[in-house]
Amino acid sequence: MSQLPIIGPIFFDHDVLVYVAYLLVPISLYVLYRTTFGLKVRAVGQNPEAADSLGVRVNAVRYATVILGSALAGLAGASLSVGLLNIFQENMTNGLGFIAVALVYFGGWRPVGVLLGALLFSTVSAFQLWMQVLGVPIPSDLAVMLPYVLTIIVLAVGVKQIRQPAALTKPYERGE
């Protein structure tokens, strides 16, 4: 199907893991907002005391999410070396993980928001590569800055309030 004109290369000419990433958006939406586990995850992030009083094992759920998140991050790293590049080099992510963290803020902790942020960042990144390859006369230093500058602008102008979980990074201990 990658032979289809225009939409072919856009939709069918990528690595399997790219489609897995897209699939993860509806999956995580479903898990976060339609399952008991998702409700617990959101509860221990917003108000762990209330969750605890209703019998949710706060730390168990938190550890589970950390492990799940780490596994997904690991998958992302593996896709870079096994899927995209077929090679491993030390520091090959070149700080891409921090971009991922920034995208979580960017997307306001919502799966669809993160997807949109990621698409915006990578579109501009691809755009600046094309500008350079096609010889648009702007200094390369400015071109490589574009995706980052744009992310900052959108964050500063577009995102009205950062909707982060109320209990983010706060350790929970019963009775305190």
Binding site: L85, L129, V144
Partner: peptide, 11 residues
């Protein structure tokens, strides 16, 4: 084209 980095293997 330049990537703006020496170690950005993915870019």
């Amino acid at each position: 084209s330049f990537t703006g980095s020496f170690g950005d293997t993915a870019l």
